[in-house]
Amino acid sequence: MMERIDTEVAIIGGGIIGASAALFLRRRGVPVTLLEAGLCGAKASGVNYGGVRRQGRPVAQMPLTRRAHELWGQLPALIGTDGEYVRSGHLKLARTEVDMAALESYRQATRGHGMHLRMLSRADLDRHYGWLGDEVIGGSFCPDDGHANPRLVSPAFARAALAAGAVLRESSPVTSALHDGRRFILRAGTALEVTSSFLLNCAGAWAGHFAAAFGEAVPETSIHPLMMVTEPLPLFMDVSLGMQGGGIYARQVARGNCVIGGGRGVSSDPDFARPGREAVQALLANAAALLRPLRGAHVIRFWSGVEGSMPDHNPVLGPSITTPGLFHAFGLSGAGFQVGPAIGEVLSQLVVDGHTNIPIDAFRIDRYAAPAHEAAGSGHTFREQTLEAS
């Protein structure tokens, strides 16, 4: 027998974005039902590297990531756990003078956004991080960036939303989503039907499918970050680090394990990814070259995941152009963990207030479909049809 739920806001996707949106909406008293295909926080939001960094993000994301930084500082009050979050500092390393110039240009471009970046020479690295290999010549340091445990943080957002009164339905993959001219209608097979005034598309790597169903096809692709974790080692690394131009990123947790990422996994199924032999060998070699204490250490696990990615590495965030009451939030391109809570808050503001003070125009879905925007026009009147009429 089909379960039927009527609500104000329906959310597709129980990752950190969808779950935080549900939490912030419930804190404002809005009825919410969230549908997750698997378990909340178990996909990209739960298997990522765990970096909580602002450094390296596009300039357009600075206001969003700054608000996220504030929310991470409130984590225990927000979700009931610190999620092993530490502001260790984030060190972005350079291999060449060209890399150093790029880091300096980025420092200049992001002045005023609260990151307080400091440029470090090779002598500075030797003085503070003597365990680094010889391949790097300097770097840029952001003192208040850090890292957390995604396996703790992401599900905790869903539990906090549930405790605040959200309706959560896990193991409920949405098989159809439409708007009948008055309400959204979501179905999860023959088991569940949800009707709502608003719909939030937070389905991660699968969100492009739902956007296309509403006439807003975008070039979202899937990426499969490769990661590994070592046995516990004596503590030596007190920062989270990355590399200008990519290639490797690493952090060490309080138990001594080193979490290291770089390269890509492989996938033969849209829902899953696994480590590949060649990429694993390259990651091992890169880690041993960069981090001297890892030479001879045992790796106890490799893994990968499925994340949505956009060509410009910026998310799709904001209102639909074709369908009043629909909001998109996806395509974080492998960097959604830190900024996820702020996106959830922004979505709640768009629903309740009709606007947000954080600039999000750069993330409009119609940047990939300008003709659709011109046809639809810029005016939206859906506010009068939703909360005020419920």
Rank of each mutant, 00 (worst) to 15 (best):
A166N: 08
Y368T: 08
G215K: 15
F272R: 15
H355P: 07
L294K: 07
R274F: 14
E374D: 13
L235A: 15
P234T: 14
Q252V: 15
S20C: 09
V280K: 10
A213N: 02
M227C: 11
F337V: 05
E374C: 11
N257W: 03
L71P: 07
G208L: 05
G208F: 04
L332M: 15
F198I: 00
V98F: 04
A163D: 15
P341M: 13
R127I: 11
A289G: 13
N48R: 08
Q281I: 07
T110W: 07
Y249K: 05
L192Q: 10
F184K: 00
E3I: 13
G276T: 11
M228G: 03
P219F: 08
R118D: 09
L186D: 01
P173H: 06
H209E: 08
N201L: 04
R364P: 06
T33N: 02
D353N: 12
S348V: 02
G165T: 09
G83H: 12
A282K: 13
G325N: 00
S88D: 08
A156Q: 13
G181L: 01
G261E: 02
I360T: 05
L75C: 07
A297C: 02
P232A: 06
I343Y: 04
S222Y: 08
R364H: 11
F236L: 11
S333V: 05
L192G: 09
R183L: 01
L200P: 01
G246D: 12
A212S: 05
R87D: 11
M237S: 12
R95H: 14
I17V: 15
V266T: 13
R274K: 14
V174P: 00
G263S: 13
R169Q: 08
V239E: 01
G80N: 12
A362N: 09
D144W: 10
